[in-house]
Nucleic acid binder design. Structure first.
Lengths: 107, 107
DNA sequence: ATCATGCTTGGCATGATAGCCAAACGACCG
DNA sequence: CGGTCGTTTGGCTATCATGCCAAGCATGAT
């Protein structure tokens, strides 16, 4: 792996890393249904306003969402919707894991 | 978000997290071309044997790869190939980021 | 049996993340 | 103006991740 490849993989991994957190993944999925303001997220989960805000900043920095201020509120929306393609596959992995642990447990 | 959902998102995020590291992502992509033994990875990147081994253990634990010992060597292969669907989208995000930073720089 | 090879595990130092609180900030309201 | 609301930022601590080294453990060769 040369330097250029290293940089590329670091960049790709950074995008995945942004989604690799329960709260952030959840927010990304929520945004699939349309834009939401920060307060909507805060109301739905029991986390500090600042915590949610920072998570959204991570997603924004990764280029996954974009924000727009309207009045007092800031709305976030998905910038690259294909991000949600992931989920199907992630769920496939989970199912495979489950199947395996069940069959193992059954023995 | 209730308890059950929290658990689900934690599980999904854990899978993504396993891939959210440059070396691990690179190895997963390498495995798309067929199984490889640990030593092949070690030779290709300048990391300690133990480091590579631990990364592979993370991927295995997440259910993304599976291993098989044959003789002295251990071979790893992708367990859920759709994992590589991700990559296309991740690259789309990177391209979008690039376009934006270019157009910003151009002003 | 002894040894070398391929790999995993334990342990440690270092750095990154997550969440909370407090403070700052900008937009609107009176 | 001064206040309030929605949000971001700074700062702190606790927890987790990464990579190296050294040691351990199988497997196959001598």
């Amino acid at each position: 792996m040369n330097e250029q490849e290293k940089t590329l993989y670091a960049a790709k991994a950074a995008v995945l890393k942004a989604l690799a957190h329960p709260t952030r993944l959840w927010m990304a999925e929520q945004l699939a249904g349309g834009e939401k303001c920060v307060c909507e997220f805060v109301n739905a989960v029991d986390f500090d306003f600042s915590t949610i805000s920072k998570h959204l900043a991570v997603l924004k920095q990764a280029g996954i969402v974009e924000d727009e201020k309207r009045g007092k509120q800031v709305f976030y929306r998905l910038k690259v919707p294909c991000v949600l393609q992931f989920i199907g596959c992630v769920e496939a992995v989970l199912k495979a894991n489950l199947r395996q642990s069940c069959s193992t447990a059954g023995k």
